[in-house]
């Protein structure tokens, strides 16, 4: 049976993984990991060495990541990530409710590939439901926005 195709760049991934492991090892050494087995750095050093060994094994391994025929980062996912970052960034300024409404309306429209009244209504109803459940029932404090003060 043919080996399943690996996701592009899967082997290269072991390089940043190894670099991350190296950071952990260096912090372990800085904290005296080699000086005493009970030092604050001993356990991070062990964890870092395990990560480094695993990163090497991942780089040399045959199964370097599942390819499922879908794009790793479709435009829709990338755009949703960007919207999400925008939503969180806007929250302290304009408040949770408007930010969440705008995010939901935009993200639902994006996923459906069309701007529709339905998306706007779902967004409005969802924000109202979140307010009822979380603000009123669970008494979660949500940012109100500095812009409206």
């Amino acid at each position: 049976m043919a080996e399943p195709a690996a996701r592009p760049g899967a082997r290269l991934l072991s390089l940043p993984l190894f670099a991350a492991a190296l950071v952990v090892v260096l912090e372990g050494l800085r904290l005296g990991g080699l000086d005493s087995p009970s030092s604050p750095g001993a356990f991070p050093l062990l964890a870092g060495l395990t990560m480094a060994g695993a990163a090497v094994a991942i780089g040399l391994g045959r199964h370097a990541g599942p390819a499922d025929g879908l794009k790793p980062l479709p435009g829709r996912v990338a755009a949703t990530m960007a919207l999400l970052v925008g939503f969180v960034a806007a929250m302290p300024l304009i408040g949770f409710h408007p930010a969440a409404f705008l995010f939901l309306a935009a993200a639902i429209s994006l996923s459906r590939r069309r701007l529709s009244l339905g998306a706007v209504l779902i967004a409005a109803a969802s924000v109202a439901a979140v307010h009822l459940v979380f603000r009123l029932a669970f008494t979660v404090l949500l940012p109100e926005g500095t812009l409206w003060r």
Binding site: L84, M91, F96, A100, L104, A107, I108, S111, F138, V140
Partner: peptide, 22 residues
Amino acid sequence: AVLVPLILVLSVVGTFAIRNSL
């Protein structure tokens, strides 16, 4: 398409609710 944005909003609310920390 509807569900995922809602989960993302709930994730934001849920995380914020822990310590009211952005």
